[in-house]
Amino acid sequence: MSLIFEHFNHWVVVILMMIGLYIVITANNLVKKVVGLNIFQSAVFLMYITMGKVVGGTAPILAEGVTQYSNPLPHVLILTAIVVGVATTAVGLSLVLRIKSAYGTIEENEFQNKEDVI
């Protein structure tokens, strides 16, 4: 029983990652693909933050009377990763907009037919 609770976070993270990946692969619409990528990445962020948590600890900001802090390093890494994520999202969505104006559609099955077979 304790195994379930101790690993619950990890498993949920895995499920979320897989949902994100599934959306990326199956989505026909490019915007939805970007949403899927974001879900996938957020799940990874959750994995990092989960490992930084110490039960009974507090946020890593120095305070009187606190001896146990959670680990600040994963927080720093994920701050960086979130920024990377939004940067990718912005570039991806601008590509979607350009694709829309160039092809008139952002549904994958529709524009792939017009494209030369690579």
């Binding site: 990874v44 994995m47 490992m51 590509l95 494209e115």
Partner: peptide, 26 residues
């Protein structure tokens, strides 16, 4: 114009690849 779809495909694949590396490093 085909460079756009190529770049988008590259973006999706590249981001998945980078995120996989991030998972591994984690």
């Amino acid at each position: 114009r085909r460079c756009l779809t190529a770049a988008f495909r590259y973006l999706v694949m590249g981001t998945i690849g980078a995120t996989f590396i991030l998972i591994g490093v984690g």
